[in-house]
Each structure stands twice: as C-alpha cells, then as structure tokens.
C-alpha cells in the first residue's frame, strides 16, 4: 500500500477546492482591489443549490443529476455574484477600500444567516451518494470521485486561463486591472467587465461548492466560512491578483495541510494554513507569483 500516494490524492482534492475558490478572490482583487470576504459563502450557496437540484431530481440517473446540479448551481451562484456586485459593491466603487471590505463582511453575514433562516441551522445530507469504487494507482487506492473532482477543477482552470488570455473580454479584464480610468476612456464598458468578473468568480466558487457538497455529503450554512479563509490564504500565498498564483497557492496549501496533518496530527491542519498566511504577509506580501503595482489579472 502506498500511503504517500493516497495522501497526494487527498492533497490534490483539497487543493482543487481551494484553487477554485481562490481564483474568485484573486480575480476580484485584481480588478477592483476588493477582498471579497463573502466569496466563501457563495461557495456555500452553490452547495445548497446543488442540494436543491439533486433533491428535485432524485429519480434521475446519478450522472444526469450530478451534471444538472453542477451546471445549475454554478450558473445560479454566478448570477448571485452578479447581484451582489450590483447591489453591494457597485455603488461603493468610488469609496475607500475599507468601506468595501466592511460591506463584503456584511454580505457574508447576510448570505450565511439568510440561508440559515430559510433552511434552518441543521446539517443537510446530500441525497446522492458517490460510488466508493476506484482503482489502484502505484499501490494507492484512488476513487473515481477524486479523479473526477481533480479533472473537473483543472478543466475549469484551463478554460478560465484561455478566456483571460485569448478573448476580448479577457483582455478588457486585464486592462481594467492595469488602469480602470484609462480603460474607460478607451470606450470599454468597465462596469460590465467587472460584473463579468464577479460572474466568473462566483461560478467557480459555486462549482467548487457542488463538488465539495457531493464529495463530503454534508452541508450547512457555515460551511463556507473556514474554506473561504483557507482560499483567501491560498490566493495570498500565490500572490493575490495573479490567476496562476491562485491555482498554485490552492494546491500548495492543500499539500502543506495534508502532509502537515499526516506528520503532526489532524488538529494542526488549520494551524498550517494560517501560519503560512502570517509568514507570507510578513515576509513576501506579494506572494509567490504576485508582482507589485503592475498588471494583476
């Protein structure tokens, strides 16, 4: 049996969730310098929408249900991101960063407590169960669910990378990150591009929410809090504002946590994440791949 191979898979799964969420943090920060602390709760909403879809489609075959839940929840959370941007952040774009930050915390509280009021504080159990089957890779037992999560996450990240690098909207996003005023003067609809950024970021968080919800099977209204903080750590680790940095940071954090917990004990998992956050903020505030002052997205 290959215990390190299994730990590697554990790390890749956790890292995939962190990366997907960290991307949203980084994109939003890159474009409007907002630390969107409500992002973890968008992930939570994604899990709940997925739960709703799966419950409604309980008769359908497993993969049809999962596919529908994934698509529907990602789109719904993308739209939620649009709404949040329109209601909470757009009116404040000209105000100080602190005002936006506090608003983000407010949005986070509204989402958490809104879900709690609507659906109750107790745990919900996803109505589907993933098959336990899998294969043996170099002596490590790997389930198909783990492989599917990693593949889906990497696929989404590659799509995002292509979008930002190769499309006109991607170019506009990068332009706003460099200089929003000049971009607006060039006739680019800045608000629309910012809204699009929120949509994409929330879409990714929502998809992570569905994947994690189905993978772990248990969801509740606070599930986004810790994960949000970890993803924030991941994006800082990689260099907030940098997309490759967010992906790298997410996986790196997954590795550090998993191997740290394996070596020292499970209770040290969070300690690793937050010690890293402190170290990076103190020693290299721009993160591993971040640059100061220049292009961000």
């Amino acid at each position: 049996m290959n215990v390190w191979g299994e730990q590697l898979m554990n790390a890749l799964v956790i890292g995939s969730f962190y990366s997907l969420i960290a991307l949203g943090y980084s994109m939003v920060y890159g474009i409007i310098q907002l630390l969107n602390f409500a992002h973890g709760d968008v992930y939570m909403v994604g899990a709940f929408v997925g739960y709703g879809v799966l419950s409604a489609m309980s008769g359908a075959p497993l993969f049809v249900g999962l596919g529908a839940a994934f698509l529907f929840a990602s789109l719904a959370t993308g739209l939620l991101g649009l709404g949040v941007e329109r209601i909470a952040y757009r009116p404040l774009l000209q105000s100080s960063r602190l005002v936006m930050l506090i608003t983000a915390i407010g949005v986070s509280l509204v989402l958490e407590n809104g879900v709690m009021l609507a659906l109750g504080p107790s745990f919900r159990v996803m109505p589907v169960e993933l098959p336990r089957s899998g294969l043996s890779l170099f002596g490590a037992d790997v389930t198909y669910a783990q492989l599917a999560i990693i593949a889906t996450s990497v696929g989404l990240m590659l799509l995002l990378d292509a979008f930002v690098r190769r499309t006109l909207y991607g170019k506009a996003m990068r332009a706003i990150a460099v200089n929003p005023t000049a971009t607006a003067l060039m006739g680019i609809p800045v608000h629309r591009v910012i809204a699009l950024t929120f949509f994409i970021g929330s879409f990714l968080a929502g998809s992570a929410g569905v994947l994690a919800g189905v993978y772990y099977g248990k969801i509740n209204f606070m599930m986004g809090f810790i994960v949000g903080l970890k993803a924030f750590t991941a994006s800082v680790l990689g260099g907030i504002g940098s997309l490759p940095g967010a992906m790298l940071g997410g996986y790196l954090l997954g590795f550090l946590e998993t191997f740290g917990a394996a070596a020292l004990g499970g209770e040290w998992k969070d300690v690793f994440a937050f010690v890293i956050l402190i170290l990076i903020l103190t020693l290299k505030p721009t993160g591993l791949l971040g640059r100061t002052g220049t292009e961000r997205v």
Binding site: Q7, N10, Y216, K218, E257, A261, A262, G266, K269
Partner: peptide, 8 residues
C-alpha cells in the same frame, strides 16, 4: 469536512 490526511 476533510479528515483524509488522518484517515490515510
């Protein structure tokens, strides 16, 4: 939600 490091 993830206890896999300890479980492995």
């Amino acid at each position: 939600n993830d206890f896999t490091p300890v479980i492995s």
